[in-house]
């Protein structure tokens, strides 16, 4: 079960239901099913729309299953859909997103794990102050920092490039990830750290030989958090990249909301589904860990 905190081990609470078909139970399951229907509807609509041909969409029912299943919209969304003058489909955005994602996830997690380790085991004068600034900084609206960062990126020559966006994601992923790692390393028994110190191990030795192997689960949580977060980002992508380096979300928005040409709803939905596929796969594959990740992101430890 995907439990959120340590005290969830004992399972659901509350009085035991007496009969299977009591009035409360019917009401309970009825409500849940109704809400589940509302939640599943968009996913279902996305899938069926993306498998229909345009004539069927024009005359038909948005909720109806496709009469004739066609994969053409998917092919078209992937390799032919146009944004402005470029007509090479979402594949370009996908490539960009992957090239943004991998280094950002790697860099942000490496930096944040070392930060968290330093903050919990090697406190120095002022370290808590910087950490507090970092956490408070996570609440500052990004809009306040957007323009100065444009100037900074221009100064170091990374504006508009994938490298620049990687840097931005690394910086803005730092507060939450540092918090995550700091709390994890703080829960490691101090005796372990002291024993290693007595044995003469230094900063990096303790990190690589003791802390890193123990922290593997939290690394997985951090990866999930970052992959979904960075993949879903739109704001930074639209500000700090140019059309050739647009991530997938920005390109998707440009394809679907473009004003030129005939609207091809099936291609649009195929493109939307394609963009949502990566986080969805991660969500359904990771289950419990995803919940831990967002809980770590949401509830301060």
């Amino acid at each position: 079960m995907a439990d959120l905190s340590a005290n969830t081990a004992s399972g659901p609470r509350g009085p035991k239901p007496k009969r299977t078909f009591s009035r409360t139970n019917i009401f309970l399951y009825g409500t849940l099913l109704l809400v589940a229907f509302y939640y599943l509807l968009p996913l279902y609509v996305m899938i069926v729309t993306s498998l229909k041909g345009m004539p069927e969409i024009r005359m038909g029912n948005v909720f109806g299953p496709p009469v004739e299943v066609t994969f053409e919209p998917w092919v078209k969304a992937w390799s032919e859909a146009c944004t402005g003058i470029n007509c090479d489909g979402l594949s370009r955005g996908f490539g960009n997103s992957v090239r943004i994602l991998l280094p950002s996830v790697f860099m942000s997690i490496v930096i944040a794990s070392i930060n968290g380790y330093a903050l919990s085991n090697w406190k120095f004068k002022g370290s808590e102050v910087f950490f507090t600034i970092l956490i408070v900084g996570a609440f500052i609206p990004y809009q306040t920092m957007l323009y100065p960062i444009v100037i900074l990126l221009r100064e170091i020559g990374l504006m508009g490039s994938i490298g620049g966006l990687v840097l931005v994601h690394t910086v803005f992923g730092m507060p939450i990830l540092t918090l995550l790692f700091r709390n994890y390393f703080a829960s490691v028994p101090e005796e372990l750290f002291k024993a290693a110190r007595v044995d003469g191990a230094g900063f990096w030795q303790i990190y690589f030989q003791i802390m890193l192997p123990m922290a593997l689960p939290i690394f997985v949580v951090a990866i999930i958090l970052q992959v979904t977060g960075i993949w879903n980002d739109f704001l930074f992508g639209v500000i700090y990249t140019k059309p050739a380096t647009y991530p997938m979300t920005v390109q998707l928005n440009n394809i679907v909301n473009s004003v030129q040409g005939v609207k091809e709803y099936n291609v649009n939905m195929a493109a939307t589904l394609l963009t949502g596929l990566v986080p969805l796969v991660i969500y359904f594959a990771s289950g419990k860990l995803f919940v831990r990740g967002i809980a770590a992101g949401a509830v301060k430890g």
Binding site: P12, G14, T272, T275, Y283, F290
Partner: peptide
Amino acid sequence: RKIRFESAFRTIFLYPFALSFVVTGLV
């Protein structure tokens, strides 16, 4: 309330959170 299929319901209620606002808005 000690219901059956709790984790299935939870999976359904949480999956939109994995999707971006762009995808949400377009759907």
